[in-house]
C-alpha cells in the first residue's frame, strides 16, 4: 500500500472514534468556557495538550481554583495510561525514526491507540507509521474543530454542560472493547479492571485508573497461563 492510501485507511478506520469524540469535544469547550477560560486558552489546551479526559479534569480543577502543582499532578496521573499505550506500540515501531516517533507520540490518544493496535496485531505493522498518521491527524482535527464548536455553543447555549454528552465516550470505548471480550483472557482482564475501577473510584488524582489497569493486565496474564497449563496437562 502506498503511504497516501495508508493515511486514508487510518483516517477511515478512525471514523467511529471521530463520531464518538465529537460530543466530547463539544462539552469540553462548553465546560472550559463555563469555568472561566478564554476561548484562546480553551483551544490552546485542545491543540497542545490533546488529551480529552485530562483536559476535562483540569478544567474542573481550574474552575475550583486548584493550585498549579495539583493540576499538573492530576494531569500526569490521568494520562499515565498513555505510557502503557506507548509501550504496547513500541514493538511495532522498530523501524520508525525520531521524526516519526515524536509526532506520533504527541498524537497518541485512546482512540488512535485502539485503532492502530488492532490493525498492527491483526495485519502487521508494515507502513504502520503512515496508517497511524492518518488516524492521528483525523482525531486531532476533529478534536480541535469540535472544541471550537463547544466554545461557541458554550457561549450561546447555557446549561449545555449538563446534557450528559459524556456518554459518547462511554459508548465509543464500549464499542471498541466488546468484540475483544470473546476471548477469555481479555474478558478476565476487562472484568478485573472494571471491578477495581468501580471499587477504587474516587481515589486521589484518579489513581484508581492506573490501579485498575494494572490489576486487569495481571488478570489477563493469569487467565492465559491457567489455560496453557490446562492444555499442557
Amino acid at each position: 500500500m502506498k503511504p497516501f492510501a495508508l493515511v486514508l485507511a487510518g483516517a477511515r478506520d478512525s471514523l467511529p472514534m471521530l463520531v464518538g469524540a465529537a460530543p466530547f469535544g463539544v462539552i469540553f469547550g462548553t465546560l472550559a468556557v463555563g469555568a472561566g477560560l478564554s476561548a484562546g486558552a480553551t483551544l490552546a489546551m485542545s491543540a497542545f495538550v490533546f488529551a480529552g479526559s485530562s483536559q476535562f479534569v483540569a478544567v474542573s480543577l481550574i474552575g475550583a481554583g486548584a493550585a498549579l502543582p495539583v493540576i499538573w499532578l492530576t494531569t500526569f496521573v490521568v494520562n499515565l495510561r498513555h505510557a502503557l499505550y506507548s509501550a504496547t506500540l513500541l514493538p511495532y515501531a522498530r523501524d520508525w525514526n525520531a521524526r516519526w516517533r515524536w509526532p506520533l507520540a504527541f498524537w497518541l490518544t485512546d482512540e488512535t491507540f485502539a485503532v492502530v493496535e488492532h490493525r498492527f496485531r491483526s495485519q502487521g505493522a508494515a507502513g504502520g507509521q503512515w496508517y497511524q498518521l492518518g488516524s492521528s491527524l483525523a482525531m486531532y482535527l476533529n478534536w480541535f474543530l469540535w472544541s471550537v464548536v463547544g466554545v461557541w455553543l458554550g457561549k450561546a447555549v447555557p446549561g449545555l454542560a449538563g446534557w450528559g454528552l459524556d456518554f459518547a465516550m462511554v459508548a465509543t470505548f464500549t464499542a471498541i472493547v466488546a468484540p475483544q471480550l470473546k476471548k477469555r483472557p481479555a474478558l478476565a482482564a476487562a472484568a478485573a479492571a472494571g471491578a477495581v475501577a468501580l471499587l477504587a473510584r474516587g481515589l486521589p488524582y484518579k489513581l484508581d485508573l492506573m490501579l485498575a489497569a494494572l490489576v486487569g493486565v495481571l488478570a489477563g496474564v493469569a487467565c492465559e497461563k491457567l489455560a496453557e497449563r490446562r492444555v499442557a496437562a
Binding site: S53, R81, L84, Y85, A87, T88, D110, F113, A114, E117, H118, M169, V170, F173, T174, I176, V177, Q180, L181, P185, A186, L187, A189, A190, A191, A192, A193, G194, A195, V196, A197, L198, D208, L209, A212, A213, V215, G216, V217, A219, G220, V221
Partner: peptide, 12 residues
C-alpha cells in the same frame, strides 16, 4: 491486555 483493561476501567 492493555486495551481491554484500560478502556473497561474508564467505562465501568
Amino acid at each position: 491486555y492493555v486495551p481491554a483493561a484500560v478502556l473497561t476501567a474508564l467505562v465501568v
